[in-house]
Design a protein around this nucleic acid. Sequence first.
DNA 1: CTGAAAGCGCTTACAG
DNA 2: CTGAAAGCGCTTACAG
Lengths: 369, 369
Amino acid sequence: MKTITEGDLLATIHDVANRAGVSVATVSRWFAGQNVRAAEAVRKAVDELAYRPNISARSLKTGRRGTIGVVVPDITNPFFAAVVKGLERAIPNGTFRILLASSDESAEQEAEVLADLTGRVDGFILAPADEQDRAPLALHRAGVPVVLLDREVTGGELHDVVLVDNVGGARAAAEHLLSLGHRRIGMINGPENTTPGRERRAGFVQALHAAGLAADTGLDFTGDFREPSGRALARRILDLPERPTALFTANNQMTIGALKTLRESGIRIPDALSVVGFDDLTLGSRLEPPLTCVTRADEEQGELTMQLLLERLQEDVPAPPQRIVLDAHLEIRGSTGPVSAQEGRAPARTRRKSATAASQPVPRKASHD
Amino acid sequence: MKTITEGDLLATIHDVANRAGVSVATVSRWFAGQNVRAAEAVRKAVDELAYRPNISARSLKTGRRGTIGVVVPDITNPFFAAVVKGLERAIPNGTFRILLASSDESAEQEAEVLADLTGRVDGFILAPADEQDRAPLALHRAGVPVVLLDREVTGGELHDVVLVDNVGGARAAAEHLLSLGHRRIGMINGPENTTPGRERRAGFVQALHAAGLAADTGLDFTGDFREPSGRALARRILDLPERPTALFTANNQMTIGALKTLRESGIRIPDALSVVGFDDLTLGSRLEPPLTCVTRADEEQGELTMQLLLERLQEDVPAPPQRIVLDAHLEIRGSTGPVSAQEGRAPARTRRKSATAASQPVPRKASHD
DNA sequence: CTGAAAGCGCTTACAG
DNA sequence: CTGAAAGCGCTTACAG
């Protein structure tokens, strides 16, 4: 037995080969799971040297990185956190790892991140900041698999995508409000150039039209899916000369923002204003009142997305792109109620200039539980 | 100008060198920011070929990966989500990327994840699942920088670590309850073999002792920092023959679980039970009642942690390890109140066998806002 | 099943 | 400042 290269730091495949008395090719094959005569000797040498293959060398040779790039708008959004958890869970042990990056809802930052990540990953899971985003297409053309998460891209029919039924969910929310007698319904929506923004408005408007109502553009506000915009737009809505009797907030973060404003202004929910959100909140069912909202299986959405990408990465001949749309369910809780009360009182049509006079905390009993 | 290798897929440094009429060394140097005579020609060639250096090749040569492994117990815990956001924000553009993995509060899974990630990253940011964890030390010895996040490791004095003042925060929470007259105070704590679990109990007990009280082990429960354990343990506490008048829940997820149980059981907060949590909830200030809790700067904790690691990765001669302890603040809101009411009624000392009779929803007025 | 050898695409002393 | 050349640690036809 020859003297072993005493690994200063890390043993290489040569060290293992020497110690096992085989060629490096044999060691490599043993690692690849192929049958090898000296399997036991190799195993022993690997063990003794605590050898681990150098990932960079392997990647350089094979072109595979063992990494998946995950780009989401904001990891502190509980929906995306849950999705990432699902993504991770769907990865078989020891196959891939997740390279995580945020776009902050900015198409520019997203482009930077994608550029930086390309070449470091085998594929992408991406929730694009903008439906006009050309990056996914470019990646696809360059042979990098991209699965779209929760958001599509125009002309992106060649991408796999896992969506939720935004139209149906938003329509259910609006129908619910309509069935309670509401006719002046406000909306705090996300950007129209995102799939959730576009589709949630579409479903909302559909329901209004079906009820013979024209969508009231004066009650329709566009935020950026983040909390501060929900806060600010709820403020705008409260300051309207003719307040709506109900409000649909198109995602969790904006719902949170809106609820904060409403609470601060002492608006009674649902008596003074019914609120329905898209996506549940952490303690949504324990809020006072419990939040009526559109829910969905967020972790499962992550799992499905990862499964799609994993299939792409394994396939020999390209299968047609898949478009999965998950169900959305309306969860009726306590934040929505009949319109009757306020409809009685005529809205203050005359107070047109009142810009901040809208918030009068009204003391009254609140139901508990 | 010679014919260019038409990149089937990606241009290599040779393609750029050829097109620019220089050697590959020059191209490499240009990328490294060194002064190069043909800078303009190189830039142009890089541009035209859309050349991006192959990361694996570079890593193989330099030993640097441009990646940081981040291992947290659970990304859906809003604290860790916020931390990850802070971590990402602290990374200068184009320097490092984050490889994210979860340990699920399991030391075994953490060990697997670390083993799999070692060799793919330049350093680790780790919130160890167990203070006895030897892995960080092993990594450190192997020359892989590790910064500990929110949790220490015994014998880990050689690691950088960014903590929060768990002792002070928990003590403040307990002192607050004591000052309200509470003497029977329950605790739902995390595992004793984690820093937050150990220190939050320590601070809690310190306050009791200072008030001349012995810590009542019968009111002291240990969960796993996850929501279901908070749920279950709150149930156990409600079923106690002699219920406490106040409860300290040692992290956000367990607070959520406990609040769910309390709500379901119709327990009035703070009248029937005062509740103070460690770490705020998303809508903590908007819950009914608003949650009294220990708060801290979570995103900043992430930023600081990353800064520490970045310094490690740059230093030539090893600086002594740093131990940063961030302030914790008690935010007094509505979920805690004076003990008076229940103290009047003698606790039902006789109902020793009652295992599930503790939850009697009591209808009564609730304050609003 | 096995080994010798080429080569993946870079970086970096080395000599000029 | 520059180029020729070695070499980082693997994998994989190729020939046996």
